[in-house]
Design a protein around this nucleic acid. Structure first.
Length: 376
RNA sequence: GUGGGUAUAGCGUAGCUGGUUAACGCGUCAGUUUGUGGCACUGAAGACCAAGGGUUCGAAUCCCUUUACCCACC
């Protein structure tokens, strides 16, 4: 149940009630693809980083350890010892990212495991069954994420198939939620809007899936190769057609600026690998912009990563020390940087919410939107 | 002391039947990273080839001397 508390122009401040607790929106979901945040962050540590929701991946967990294993272990919450909301991605994106190995048909997608190469099939029903086994709070629909740019006719056919898949997802989810043996019988289902970079297809697809009255709606297929301006334009024309009383999720986005701009266009939920992946590659976010920690200028720098940050990393360690850890290949380097970046992202969302509460989001946006993505 | 061997970027090496801007790995420096298969990827700087002399149109490559180090034997 999503409650809209306040708006400022198109930006929305809300509360999202789930069986695993209430989420304050807008919010960022911390990506733990294989039931783990990469970089060595355990669930109790994640609690200390202001994380509200963790995201896990259907495709990866299906392959390893197997969703049957997670089911027998009592579901993802118990398995990971994370008791706040979890969103599972459907595996649809892997159809796109593992494109070399796939074959898309009406019934679903055939592709090869990246682990052992074996041929596997996933369709809407399979994705829902796996996500039901994982027992996440929110399940995502099984969609096709087309690359940008793609030919108009291809995208047109693709969104119609994605709609047909969504109808099957909904039916299968209702069936699974009615079963006694299901761990989370109140699992929610989000639909995913596609349509490439074509305004009319985006809007048409949104109208089609809106009729299914799902628990939330996501915008997929953005930040996959198109210029940032194109992504903003799609959001500009699309969010007016999204349900007002349902959470809106911009999938896989993005930089701190992208998130601020997304909120400004009416988005409530985000997820991205950027804070964790960049951290593992020694790039950290600060309130003054982005910086690369292995740069020589930090060799003798006694300051924390960010002087305004009170994350566990910044409270304890200097840039010089963390730079040394990176140069030495120590695993601790990645962990300290990931802790900082996730805390930064979650704090960014907190500040966005505070500014929405105060009615000062537009000022916040003007001050930070560009600044946070510049290089220090 | 005698015989043999090696000296090429910060380090470890390739090139050594002589022929345009001396190659590779590591390291260094910088950049990339958007619903995470990949501990990742891209690029740059850096050596007048131990020193000196000689042969040759031309030498890191062939010859001589010196120096340093390595191995074996006294």
């Amino acid at each position: 149940m999503f409650k809209l508390i306040k708006t400022e122009d198109k930006a929305r401040r809300g509360e999202f009630e789930t069986p695993h607790g209430t989420i304050q929106s807008p919010f960022f979901m911390n990506v733990g693809t294989a039931a783990a945040i990469k970089g060595g962050i355990s669930s109790p540590m994640l609690e200390g980083l202001k994380c509200q929701v963790e995201l896990c991946n259907t495709y990866h967990l299906h392959l390893r350890p197997g969703d049957d294993v997670v089911y027998k272990m009592g579901g993802l919450h118990k398995f990971m010892n994370w008791h706040k909301p979890i969103l599972t991605d459907s595996g649809g994106f892997q159809v796109f990212s593992l494109a070399k190995l796939r074959k898309i048909k009406e019934e679903g997608v055939y592709f090869n495991s990246h682990i052992d190469g074996r041929r596997i099939f996933m369709g809407p029903e399979e994705s829902m069954q796996i996500q039901s086994h994982l027992a996440s709070t929110i399940a995502m629909a099984f969609d096709e994420c087309v690359e940008n740019p793609s030919p108009y006719d291809y995208v047109k056919n693709s969104i119609d198939r994605t709609t047909r898949w969504l109808i099957r997802c909904k039916a299968e989810m209702e069936r699974l939620n009615s079963l006694e043996a299901t761990i989370n019988r109140r699992q929610m289902l989000f639909g995913i809007n596609q349509g490439g970079t074509y305004d009319d297809l985006r809007i048409r697809h949104m109208k089609d899936i809106k009729e299914l009255d799902l628990d939330g709606y996501a915008v997929g297929g953005l930040a996959v190769g198109e210029p940032t301006e194109v992504m903003y334009h799609i959001l500009d024309v699309l969010t007016d057609h999204m349900p007002v009383n349902k959470p809106r999720y911009l999938m896989g986005v993005g930089t701190p600026s992208n998130i601020i701009e997304g909120v400004a266009r009416g988005i409530d939920m985000f997820d991205c690998v950027m804070p964790s992946r960049n951290a593992r590659h020694a790039t950290v976010f600060t309130w003054d912009g982005v910086t690369h920690l292995t740069n020589l200028c930090y060799q003798l720098d006694d300051k924390p990563l960010d002087e305004h940050c009170d994350c566990p990393t910044c409270r304890n360690f200097s840039r010089a020390y963390i730079r040394h850890l990176f140069k030495s290949g120590e695993q601790l380097a990645g962990r300290l940087a990931v802790q900082h970046n996730l805390y930064f992202y979650n704090t960014l969302m907190e500040k966005i919410r505070e500014n929405l509460d105060k009615g000062t989001f537009s000022e916040f946006r003007a001050e930070y939107s560009e600044r946070l993505s510049q290089k220090v």
